[in-house]
Design a protein around this nucleic acid. Structure first.
Lengths: 343, 343
DNA sequence: CTGAAAGCGCTAACAG
DNA sequence: CTGTTAGCGCTTTCAG
């Protein structure tokens, strides 16, 4: 049986109070007593029971992270950064995968299944932000990507329209005119894809080009397969584009794979820009030009938002809406000169 | 303020006991009472407090997953599968990244910082398995990869020697004779790399080839950069290999990147085999031949082991040592014919 | 079928 | 500086 604080107290011949003080360093304890208590702790292998502590404190020290899927490099990287930053704040992260399922997202937000988390960072996918109405009042929530219309939750995201505009403008600057977009997701309530499409259209129009609807390619998800399929579709069309802006690096890598398999040379015949700056893109052949959001800052800011709410005495903090910086990283899929090995 | 079970009881005009029964379906409650209680629950937005429940039950429903890093595709995939399988068992997963730091691994195992987890799945890196001695008695532990010499913890892993042997034998069958190995990690206590090296040596010897020590390339970590660097080193050597067996897909992809940048054509001049079967390898150019461990089975078995121990009344279960099946997936980096687009 | 009450392990208010 | 004790919210034994 595991030993409790009481056992330690008995063994050291002191009261529970004193043991608690030693463990938490909360009050002054004589060096001698401290020593005796510490010995008892070591001998019994005592470890505080966090469930009891949480019950007492009303806080669990656990924050939730809800993402569509962990195996996507972008989310994996982000999750890794969040776990690290959380540890720095002595928080633990529990991860849930929603698989883009509305029910799963809702369940997390409404806190069904009990209150474990002190706060939740969620990257909504299936769920529209308005579905958050009931929720955010009871649980501090940070939205990644999607803005809450009622301002009920904090939000941390890059400026997707501007970023997509930059990516497209870069392609235009390379002399490309027939620029397709891969990655629309009309079936999702999540507005990110639409914002990127908007930036793409905006840049084209500014260059005097009318965006072709048949070059706005919808995808079921953001995986490499979807990008590969979309690219194949484009290559089978009447007019073949000379550039592609993919809304994620995975889509871009899938497209690159198909181009390669079909004998289309990149970047000569086809330029490609992705979004996310995942590690794979730095080592693909050729390496991938991409929009790089500052992921570490996303992680830091998201946790800061949670901390503000969790430790704030009053819960009338206005919702913050943080825009995270991004930059365009030019590599081999748009620049023939950029063939140097990565790093 | 959040409402507790007592509030619900008061509101419904019943006792706490009855509310508890309704929530857990633990005893027979008249339909009418159940209805009234349910209404009270809905009106008050009651959610059970898991800290209290855990305190009572002596279990938290949380299992820990300790991996070196989440941003590695292999670990990300595995973590995703584990999270899914855990949910199926109504468990929650907390993830810790050890960064291959011995202190971090030890801290997790000794349960410093309190008892939150009902069990721990750990992929040890810095820590030798013998460091587990003190630990596994108090906390159910499953080791991924490393075997515990004292048999104090369950272990789930592929047969690394056999797998490496197969990979190397495949290269030999393609007519390759100058086969290098990338991925030794003499600085780690973790024995996985050494096992793979052993399989590589064994296959070479069987073919009458003496393994060259200078072609056993050590790496600092298993990332693409390390693979890229190792490949560069090989290409700069006196004799250039005609094949490479990399101990991870990331290393292999880094090597592929360097080969491409240096104008070495794959698979004609250089064949490459990786290990892990991460998604990126299916879409690289050319796609990557690799050893594919059954990751879902790893996840399932690991959780099954934990379940057995957590729910077992006695803690004298013998340590199980499960070997997970793997298979060699032949793709473009060893087979010129395999250029068809993925999927 | 339902109520009353003990107690899980810990912290902190109160007393000494 | 240290002991005593109430109570966090829940489950469950014991009565009724």
């Amino acid at each position: 049986m595991r030993s409790s604080l009481k056992d330690v107290a008995a063994r050291a011949g002191v009261s529970a109070r004193t043991v608690s003080n030693v463990v938490n360093g909360s009050a002054r304890v004589s060096a001698e007593t401290r020593q005796r208590v510490q010995e008892a702790i070591d001998e019994l292998g005592y470890r505080p029971n966090l469930a009891a502590r949480s019950l007492r404190a009303g806080r669990t020290g656990i924050v939730g992270l809800a993402i569509p899927e962990l195996h996507s490099p972008y989310f994996a990287e982000l999750a890794g950064l969040l776990v690290d930053e959380a540890r720095r704040r002595s928080w633990t992260v529990i991860i849930d995968q929603t698989q883009g399922d509305a029910e799963a997202e809702r369940r997390l937000l409404t806190g069904d299944g009990g209150r474990v988390m002190d706060g939740l960072i969620i990257s909504p996918w299936a769920l529209g932000a308005r579905d958050l109405t009931d929720t955010a009042r009871s649980l501090p929530v940070v939205l990644l990507g999607e803005r809450s219309p009622q301002g009920l939750a904090d939000r941390v995201a890059v400026d997707n329209v501007a970023a997509a505009d930059e990516a497209t403008t870069h392609l235009l600057a390379q002399g490309r005119r027939r620029i397709a977009a891969i990655g629309l997701q009309p079936h999702l309530a999540n507005g990110t894809a639409e914002q990127r499409a908007e930036g793409w259209r905006r840049a084209l129009r500014r260059a005097g080009i009318t965006p072709r609807p048949e070059w706005e390619l919808a995808v079921a998800s953001l995986h490499r397969t979807d990008g590969a399929r979309a690219m194949a579709h484009l290559l089978d069309g009447d007019t073949v584009p000379d550039a592609v802006f993919a809304f994620s690096d995975e889509l871009a890598l899938g497209a690159l794979h198909t181009a390669h398999a079909r004998g289309v040379s990149v970047p000569q015949d086809l330029a490609i820009v992705g979004f996310d700056d995942i590690e794979d893109g730095r080592f693909s052949n050729p390496s991938l030009t991409t929009v790089s959001p500052d992921k570490r800052q996303i992680a830091q800011r998201a946790l800061q938002c949670l901390a503000d709410r969790i430790y704030s005495p009053r819960n009338d903090l206005p919702a913050s809406d943080l825009t995270i910086p991004h930059r365009l990283v030019v590599r081999g899929t748009t620049d023939p000169a950029a063939t140097a090995p990565a790093h």
